[in-house]
Design a protein around this nucleic acid. Structure first.
Lengths: 145, 145
DNA sequence: CCTTGACCTCAAGTTAAGTTGAGGTTGTAG
DNA sequence: CTACAACCTCAACTTAACTTGAGGTCAAGG
């Protein structure tokens, strides 16, 4: 019952495609070992990894950043409660930050988009507009759902 | 002083690259008219459009969706306060929704990632895990910063 | 007039996060 | 022992949102 899982089983249980699991593996997000016949076998905690991966991804964290966070998890053994807690703490700060940003935006929009305040210097949107000039052309922005 | 703007000026003021402005134009997000010598000229309200575009993009709204929203803006004339307010209202609902989702996630993570509750059926993460199987392989997810 | 910087178009390249397909192997059920 | 589903690898394709480059035009200063 606490048998190891095949890719197909993990795919079914976690809701991601087999090809996505292969891909995550190349990115170091999950690991597996192989049977005699070269087929992947996963230990059960891969399910938790994938679940957390998806949740993080949904809130706009890139796979690269998730990989960085996962790097703090132990390599050889199944993560303990403490290991996950460390991650949780890191995520929580990030989520708090994102929530604050969204709230700022929502409130800024409520006050500003329709208010005609583009002409006054106090408007967040207007500020944004002229301040960002410094950033100039840069790298691609990420994409998230 | 209320002269029209060149691409370079808009780029500098709005903090996006000239190439990005060209690109937005092909996507119908902004418009310009041409001088005798075929150079673009923008009316001042393009600055507001771009500012809002970037803000919306930052919170994870795709250009396609932004274009949809912008489609409700008047074609010929400069948008009025009412026009922007309509947009603002649409954004606000979306932002509220996103904020609620993030909060749910943050709280869920706080309770769940480190709690070892993967084994009990009440855990949001665990539920997510097995419920999503229905979705199966699907379209790409978007990417946003 | 000529140079120099800003513009123009169009095609091709880039990154993220996967998917799709071809060609071949494994494992299990009948 | 033979189907047939599930697995394997590797290369190529996809989408979003741009950037980069090539090859050529426009405009303002000296």
């Amino acid at each position: 019952m606490t048998r190891e899982l095949t890719v197909g089983e993990v795919a079914k249980r976690s809701g991601v495609a087999v090809s996505a699991l292969h891909f995550y593996e190349t990115r170091g997000l999950i690991r597996s070992h192989r049977t005699e016949g070269n087929q992947r076998r996963y230990s059960r905690d891969v399910l938790r990894r994938v679940a957390i991966l998806k949740v993080a991804q949904d809130v706009g964290i890139s796979l690269a950043d998730i990989a960085d966070a996962f790097a703090s998890l132990p390599d050889g053994r199944t993560p303990t409660r403490e290991d996950w807690t460390r991650l949780s703490t890191a995520w929580k700060a990030d989520l708090d930050h994102r929530i604050r940003q969204l709230q700022k935006l929502r409130d800024g929009l409520g006050d500003c988009i329709g208010c005609g305040c583009m002409s006054i210097t106090a408007c967040p949107l207007r500020n944004r507009e002229d301040r960002l000039a410094a950033k100039g052309p840069g790298a691609h922005r990420l994409v998230v759902q």
